[in-house]
Amino acid sequence: MAHGTRGGPDGRTVATMVPSATDLVVALGAADRIIGISHECDHPAVTGRPILTRSAVPGAPDPGRAAADPAALDAAVSAARAADAPLYLTDRAALHRLAPGVVVAQDVCDVCAVTGDQVACEVPEGTEVVRLGAVDLNGLRTDLRTVGRALGGEGPDRAEAAIAALDDGLAAVRATVAGQPRPRALLLEWGDPPFVAGHWVPELLEVAGGIDALGAPGAPSRRVSWDEVATADPDVIVFLPCGYDLDAATHEGRALLARPELTGLRAVAEGRTWATDATRVFSRCTPVAVQAARVLASILHPEVAGPVDPRAARRLGPEQT
């Protein structure tokens, strides 16, 4: 389909303004309709498509890479938000030139990507704006149905098939770890300052047979103190920094474990610390949630769930004895 062709209800072109949007549209069999993507979209099915967004924060790392100074990046983001300055910019001229029939954005996190409100002010007249809003697995089911309806044609049926596959995959993980002890895990979404993961990630931990030491299913990620971390003294630490790939998370995670606040924790001393490919596995509420649950199950219960996929997670500390 040529760029700029809006088409009928069964063939409208799509622009995806956040990686999860791209992943959902691809999962519903419509990769060929995507004519523009965000600068963070990394699905191989859309390599080379026009880029429609960029970061407006000075010093922001390339997608998937570690920040040179996580604390400085956190401060820059906080300052921009306090000044009501945009964190991301849209290439409005390119968006109007491509004239997609549908633009898929998100309303979950203004730190992570262009928001639906921002996109709604930028799109050409007549373009439908779909807003992803999943903060839990039920929300993911809703997002799949919403995107399916916007795609038209077989989109709704494919959405129901994707939901069935999601539910079957999660049920299989639950069955695998059923009856196992439930270790307490600290899920760190950012290292400096420390944030614990929220929204769907604690829910996936529960599916995988664990208990969240400081977070709660459905609650947003939140900043915590190192004293809270030390008091929690979790059985396992999983480092899943938002937007980092596995190599970047490993590099920063190993430096993080050298902090004096962490060196005395049992999980650190006994080698139960892990880094993950957070950007592809944990930072998006998409059908990748099944893979994320499997990764957590393998970290917590390797005796029944099998070894951890080395492409998705890596041990930070020494091997357990």
Rank of each mutant, 00 (worst) to 15 (best):
P9K: 06
D10E: 12
D10V: 13
D10G: 11
T13S: 08
T16G: 05
M17F: 15
L28A: 12
G29C: 03
G36S: 04
S38C: 02
E40P: 10
H43F: 08
H43I: 00
V46G: 01
V46A: 05
T53H: 00
T53N: 00
A56H: 06
R65Q: 13
R65K: 09
D74H: 15
V77F: 06
V77P: 03
A82K: 11
A83F: 05
A85C: 13
A94R: 14
D107A: 15
D110V: 11
T115N: 03
G116R: 02
D117H: 13
D117L: 15
A120T: 04
P124Q: 02
E128L: 11
E128S: 06
G133C: 09
V135Q: 10
L137V: 07
T146G: 13
G152S: 06
G155C: 12
D157M: 15
E160P: 06
G169E: 14
V173A: 01
V173Q: 04
V173W: 00
R174L: 10
A175E: 13
T176C: 14
A178V: 15
P181K: 13
E189T: 12
W190C: 08
P194G: 11
F195K: 06
F195L: 10
G198R: 03
W200R: 02
A208Y: 09
A213C: 13
A216E: 14
R222F: 11
S225Y: 12
W226H: 14
E228C: 02
V229M: 08
A230P: 04
F239H: 12
G243I: 09
R259W: 08
T263C: 05
R266Y: 09
A267W: 12
V268D: 00
V268R: 01
A275F: 07
T276G: 06
D277K: 10
T279Q: 08
T279K: 15
V281A: 01
R284F: 11
T286C: 05
P287D: 05
V288D: 01
Q291D: 11
P307S: 12
D309L: 03
A312V: 15
R315F: 03
G317W: 01
